[in-house]
Amino acid sequence: MIVSLNEIQNLIYRSGLAVKLPAGVAKENSFVAVRMFREGFGSLNVFVKAFNSLRKTLSVNFDVVKASEGNFVPMINKRRLSSLLVSSSVCDLLTLFEENDKKKIIVKKIDEPLILFFHILQLSKKLNRDFKVSFFLQNNETNFLISTYEGIYYLKENLFEEIDADKITIENFTKQNLSSDFNGLNKGNIDFFLEDEVWLYFSKFSDSLLVEDSIKSRIHNAGSGLNDND
């Protein structure tokens, strides 16, 4: 179905609240979902996976002590790191970096790297700064995405389909260093299409925040009586 960005934002925000994400974190994830659509990623499948992972506790929050040193790992061994929970904090630490800082943030075993990447893209816009995000894949291959104020630059076109990194590093980057091998990602169509099953998946969460009406609430909680014809 064709949806509006406002609907996507509300759906992810309210679904986030429904699965007990802190309000600020839910809100930032909802902005990221909108950003994904605006950049041409007409799917919320990564969010479906991230929500599933979190609900089944396959993904968990991060170890706070290690995180304060710039090393984000799951707080429970053998679990994945929840991209929904960790991404805001990763961006907070990146914000504390000076522009010429050579430090790197390391994120290990994140469940949906793309969600983290779009959080960083939002941060690029907010700070007007560029970041290089390196994905270390299981076959020892490394790929890069460059996040800039203007949008995304990439080396390998199908990277977005196969991002499944055990380790991600994020560091400052200067766009002037961008080699000609990198391509800018074109923004997608203005129509935002969402699969019915994804809409239903999130609607179920979102609707769980709604309160059933009763005869009393119909009469009193919205205004006056049932009929106020004039």
Partner: peptide, 26 residues
Amino acid sequence: WYYSKEKLEPRRGIRGQDLGSEKEMR
């Protein structure tokens, strides 16, 4: 304050008397 299931509109209830306070709007 909460969202009504019937009309997706904000409503106001009394804590301890009306159902739904655990779904309070932020």
